[in-house]
Simulated scan of single mutants.
Amino acid sequence: MDMRRAIFSMGELHRPSYCEKCGGVLVYKGLGEYECEECGHQEYDDYGKVRNYLDEHKGANVAEISDATGVTHKSIRDMIKDNRFEIINNAGGYIRCEMCGANISSGRLCSKCEQLYHRQLEEEARRMRKSGIQGGSEGFREETGERRFIRER
Results as ranks from 00 to 15, higher is better:
Gly92Pro: 02
Cys36Asn: 06
Gln115Glu: 14
Asp67Cys: 04
Asn90Cys: 00
Arg126Ala: 07
Leu116Thr: 01
Glu35Ser: 06
Gly23Ala: 02
Ile95Arg: 00
Glu33Leu: 14
Gly70His: 12
Asp67Ile: 04
Leu121Ser: 04
Gly40Val: 03
Glu12Gln: 03
Cys110Ala: 02
Glu12Met: 05
Lys81Thr: 01
Ile150Ser: 01
Tyr117Cys: 04
Cys110His: 05
Asn52Met: 13
Cys19Ile: 04
Gln120Cys: 05
Glu114Leu: 14
Gly139Gln: 14
Glu152Gln: 10
Tyr34Thr: 00
Val27Leu: 14
Ile95Gly: 04
Lys49Pro: 01
Phe140Cys: 07
Cys22Met: 09
Arg147Phe: 10
Ser75Gly: 06
Cys39Phe: 11
Arg119Gly: 00
Phe140Asn: 12
Leu109Tyr: 15
Gly93Glu: 12
Val27Ser: 07
Val50Asn: 02
Ile104Cys: 07
Val50Phe: 09
Ile76Ala: 05
Lys29Met: 06
Gly145Cys: 07
Ser111Gln: 12
Glu142Trp: 12
Ser131Ile: 07
Cys39Gly: 03
Ala91Asn: 11
Ile7Lys: 14
Ile7Asn: 10
Met10Tyr: 07
Ser106Glu: 13
Gln134Met: 13
Ile104Glu: 05
Ile7Arg: 15
Ser75Phe: 02
Cys110Gln: 01
Leu31Cys: 09
Thr69Tyr: 10
Glu35Asn: 02
Gly135Trp: 13
Glu35Leu: 06
Glu142Ile: 11
Arg108Gln: 13
Arg4Tyr: 08
Gly92Glu: 11
Ala6Asn: 01
Glu138Leu: 13
Cys36Ser: 08
Met99Tyr: 11
Glu12Tyr: 03
Phe8Ser: 08
Arg15Cys: 04
Cys36His: 09
Gly132Arg: 00
Glu38Val: 05
Gly136Trp: 14
Glu146Gln: 11
